[in-house]
Write a protein that binds this DNA or RNA. Structure first.
Length: 600
RNA sequence: GCACCCAUAGCUCAGCUGGAUAGAGUGUCGCCCUCCGAAGGCGAAGGUCGUAGGUUCGAAUCCUACUGGGUGCGCCA
């Protein structure tokens, strides 16, 4: 038997694409096109191959892969698509890896690959392990993903949860695609809301000292500040009682925000989220960074004094009056209005630190900067993009991802959140009820910009409908069959599987699963390019479906069962495939921050 | 009033830098355990991709207008 590595045509694959079958075949197509040019069958002038793609066909009946080369090149080459396609087919058929090539439809070239190509891929997956599918697209580049960034005025709730999961999975995805990723949290500890926090905490402090707290409207009423009040009592005794705000505000604000951030960090830890950098808004105020930034912007001519038109369509009777303010020229960079940076009392608007912060991120030299906001902050996208457009050169990729709302359900019934009624669902509540793995996976079973229904009962259901379970079940089955094979006395060690005779994987049901594995590196690239980690979750569901399908075929076709009693060589080949499936599932779940299951 | 997001099978949703006869799950109907985990699988039926135009070899995908739903709109972050 030929070892798997030598079953291929000896022509080497390009190094940077050695694991992606689609780019391998694409380069094969490009080689063929180049050969056609050399032979005079295709013009050289004005012909570029950038738009040539090799993709899985929508319908498997069309083959394993399809290329649009003939259609894309027809116009610049001034040739008929079919003529190019037919010449291309002739060239491609010379390669051992291509068993069939035919022209179809308007000029597609459909390809069928030799089984040996797929069989060898199993070996590639096992050899690469968790690295199979890692991409070079982000190699040598840096990315900054800012997410959560909840105000430090209370514990995280379910809305933050989705942003946290999405942002973290996106960061994991970018890392898998080769980027050096910084996970960052912007701490809004510098504005009026932390003064409100301090006042609210002060009331709890009074409460701890035996006084009835006066939680007026506008203060934070949550019980979570009671421990803060107690901590303040421990620290200050009754020395701050009945003192004017000026004597305690700064101190209490500092202590309260620190305690809230500790709580937020521990909430995030429950979810498995660990930030690399927490950037403090307050530090921007304290260090003069805002003034410095604004000075620079003035130098660039991006700030001016002016008056904004009144907002339209709001309540007609409001106390709006024209006022001259210091404005940022964001309309020059795609925003709808220029944004004020200074309030009438001379203080900075919230926009000023945003401006300085994003300028800072740009200056730190990231190749990719991504902000993850809740959908209720959709109105800020244009102004943020204006900042980066004004301050960064065009090489910086800046993207803002919005996460839509999460609607909670319990047994199919909508679950209304209300702070007053005490049915306020925190992130901690969710994790404690369903666990971090389920929470994370479910949060990624929708596109980020689609609303998500989260049913506390359904997410724990063990059925086909529940993708968390379904994917976990697949990896559990692999683990289970591995145990069984080992108990049967078969050698299922990594070393044995690495040497397995993969040529025995010749059934179309097996090749179909391998073809799905072949899509993995390509999918990772697409997901990373579009900043859409949900694609990973959907892919895993598809891979699991193909695997379960193969598994069940074994019910009718005994030769498809993974364990072939008394035939170690065949068992090893089949188990190599099962292992390859579990390797990719583990890698995918790893990106999403979910643990694969060994048993259920 | 303006801006952004969304509209795909009865329901919940995928759909790649624009590709061929638009896919899953669920629900309905019919099958498959002496058999590696049936917590599963196979098959059938189900669509004017919100509407109307445009761009082109080709549009669910890009552009324009409209309809319907969500979010937001100076001195709050």
């Amino acid at each position: 038997m030929t070892p798997p590595g030598q079953m291929l045509n000896p022509r080497p694959f390009p190094k940077d694409a050695a694991m992606n079958l689609f780019t391998d075949i694409r380069s094969l197509v490009l080689d063929a096109l180049t050969a056609m040019q050399a032979a005079g069958a295709l013009p050289t002038e004005g012909i570029g191959f950038d738009n040539v793609t090799v993709e899985p066909p929508r319908d498997a009946a069309h083959g394993d892969m399809a290329t649009n080369a003939a259609m894309v090149l027809a116009k610049p080459a001034k040739m008929k698509p079919r003529d190019i396609a037919e010449a291309l087919v002739a060239h491609l058929l010379e390669d051992d890896r291509i068993t069939e090539a035919e022209v179809a439809g308007p000029g597609f070239v459909n390809l069928r690959l030799a089984p040996s190509v797929y069989q060898a891929l199993v070996g590639t997956v096992l050899a690469a392990g968790p690295d199979y599918g890692k991409s070079a697209v982000g190699q040598g580049k840096t990315a900054n993903v800012e997410y959560v960034s909840a105000n430090p005025t209370g514990p995280l709730h379910v809305g933050h949860c989705r942003g946290a999961v999405f942002g973290d999975a996106l960061a994991g995805l970018m890392a898998y695609a080769g980027y050096d990723v910084t996970r960052e949290y912007w701490v809004n500890d510098g504005g009026a809301q932390v003064d409100v926090l301090a006042r609210s905490a002060y009331e709890r402090y009074r409460e701890a000292n035996g006084q009835a707290p006066k939680i007026e409207a506008g203060l934070y009423p949550g019980d979570y500040l009671i421990p803060v009040g107690e901590a303040l009592k421990e620290r200050f005794g009754d020395s701050l009682m009945d003192k004017p705000e000026s004597e305690w505000l700064v101190q209490i604000r500092e202590i309260a925000t620190t305690m809230m951030m500790e709580e937020i960090r521990s909430d995030l830890a429950l979810l498995g989220v660990k930030m690399d950098v927490f950037t403090s808004e307050k530090s921007y105020y304290d260090s003069g960074k805002i003034e410095k930034t604004l000075e620079e912007l003035k130098g660039l001519g991006l700030l001016y004094n002016g008056t904004l038109p009144p907002p339209k369509g709001k309540a007609p009777d409001e106390d709006w009056e024209p006022r001259e303010q210091l404005l940022f020229k964001s309309t020059d960079y795609g925003d709808d209005v220029d944004r004020p940076v200074q309030k009438s009392d001379g203080g900075w608007t919230y926009f000023a630190p945003d401006l300085a912060y994003h300028y800072d991120k740009v200056k730190r030299g990231f190749d990719v900067i991504i902000d993850v906001f809740g959908a209720d902050h959709g109105g800020y996208v244009k102004r943020m993009k204006a900042i980066v457009a004004a301050l960064a050169d065009e090489k910086v990729v800046f993207d803002i991802k919005l996460t839509q709302l999460v609607k909670l359900f319990k047994n199919g019934e909508p679950f209304k959140m209300s702070k007053r009624a005490g049915t306020f669902i925190t992130l901690r509540d969710v994790i404690e009820q369903v666990g971090p793995d389920v929470t994370r996976f479910v949060m990624l079973t929708r596109r980020n910009d689609a609303p998500l229904d989260f049913d506390f009962d359904k997410v724990l259901e063990q059925s086909r409908e529940n993708p968390v379970f379904y994917v976990q079940y697949a990896s559990a089955r692999v683990a289970s069959v591995m145990r069984k094979a080992t108990e049967a006395g078969l050698d299922m060690s990594d070393a044995a599987l690495a040497k397995a005779d993969l040529g025995r994987l010749d059934h179309e049901a097996e090749l179909k699963v391998i073809a799905k594995l072949a899509e993995w590196p390509r999918l990772v690239e697409i997901a990373a390019r579009t900043h859409e980690p949900h694609r990973i979750a959907f892919y895993l569901n598809e891979l699991a479906a193909d695997f379960h399908g193969l598994w069940n075929r074994g019910n009718e076709v005994p030769s498809l069962r993974f364990v072939q009693e008394g035939d170690e060589a065949t068992s090893q080949a089949k188990m190599a495939l099962a292992r390859a499936v579990s390797v990719v599932i583990s890698a995918g779940l790893g990106i999403l921050g979910v643990e694969p299951a060994q048993e259920m």
